[in-house]
């Protein structure tokens, strides 16, 4: 097992489009009496970008943690390319699922290049003795790792900053570095947890292009996001998670048009429709407040 630079274009193990990469069946996660995720099914096919949306606290990140071995699901199982995932997060990464974190978790006191090299840990074998004895095999593997890491930095556009400390990168570049680090483990499926949180529209567009480029490498992508424009531009399929349960799944149009989704985000109308008097009262109040407040609908779009 060496550090050959696979997945540059079409990976040898890249499955034909349409084949199931990730198959989660009936995943349930309970913390004591609280059920954070209830009986969620989700499949991701190769060459596909799948979005996972839902209001805050819907269980998206918990579901992600179930997929990556950080949590062991209480019920249900997760299969990656037909094999049930092991219950340890480092084994999941070795199996081929890489992830990023909602709140960036880089190794902040390591350089950019070192961060990516750490990502290559599962794809290299050199142990302690090899490091101390420094045979030719060690130098070869180290050089190959560095070459691959630089390729990935080139890919996300950070090659010029390879020797900078990760903590000194601006926010958007830290996100990119986290993606490069995840890609270094040569995954077949990449899980992105809110990759555009805190980004400006321009940075969001760059990220969008980056995710498309990753898909074009033959890596399936599952992405959690609150930015609806981003999600609906990007994803082939979107699943909506509300209160731990999957509400609906389908393409952008289906999800956008679904009443239940709108209700979940904006709340249900009252049981009894408001009478004329109330409507007039509300309109008067709105007219008064219009100068100060933004329009409440569409709030989820302009974060």
């Amino acid at each position: 097992m060496t550090t050959d630079t696979t997945t540059k274009d079409a990976t040898p193990d890249a499955t034909a489009p349409g084949q199931v990469v990730l198959d989660a069946r009936g995943v349930t996660m309970r913390f004591g009496g609280l059920t954070a995720v209830r009986n969620v099914d989700l499949t991701v096919n190769s060459g596909e970008i799948v979005g996972l949306i839902g209001p805050n606290g819907a269980g998206k990140t918990t579901f992600f943690n179930c997929l990556t071995g950080l949590y062991v699901p209480t019920e249900g199982e997760v299969r990656y390319k037909g094999n049930v995932l092991p219950p340890k997060s480092f084994k999941v990464t070795a199996a081929g699922i890489a992830r990023t974190f909602q709140n960036i978790r880089l190794f902040s006191n390591m350089t950019v290049l070192e961060n990516v090299l750490v990502g290559r840990h599962t794809r290299t074998k050199e142990g302690f003795w090899s490091a101390v004895l420094r045979g030719p095999g060690f130098h070869r593997a180290e050089a190959a790792s560095r070459e691959r890491a630089m390729e990935l930095l080139e890919f996300v556009g950070l090659a010029a900053k390879a020797e900078h400390l990760a903590r000194n990168l601006p926010y958007g570049e830290q996100r990119k570095l986290e993606i490069a680090r995840a890609l270094a483990s040569e995954p077949g499926l990449l899980l992105l947890d809110e990759p555009t949180a805190g980004m400006n529209p321009q940075e969001t567009r760059t990220t969008e292009e980056l995710v498309f480029a990753i898909r074009d490498k033959g890596i399936a992508v599952l992405v959690i996001e609150h930015d609806m424009r981003f999600i609906f531009n990007l994803c082939d399929r979107v699943a909506v998670l509300v209160q731990g349960e999957k509400l609906v799944e389908g393409d952008s149009a289906t999800v956008q048009g679904d009443e239940r989704v709108i209700a979940a985000y904006l709340g249900e109308p009252f049981e009894d429709a408001p009478g004329d008097a109330e409507v007039a009262e509300v309109e008067a109040a709105e007219a008064q407040a219009e100068a100060q407040t933004d329009a409440a609908p569409g709030k989820e779009n302009d974060r």
Partner: peptide, 12 residues
């Protein structure tokens, strides 16, 4: 630096 992230990067 960050044990959780290190585990998620495949480090045992």
């Amino acid at each position: 630096e960050d044990e959780t992230a290190a585990l998620a990067m495949g480090i045992n």
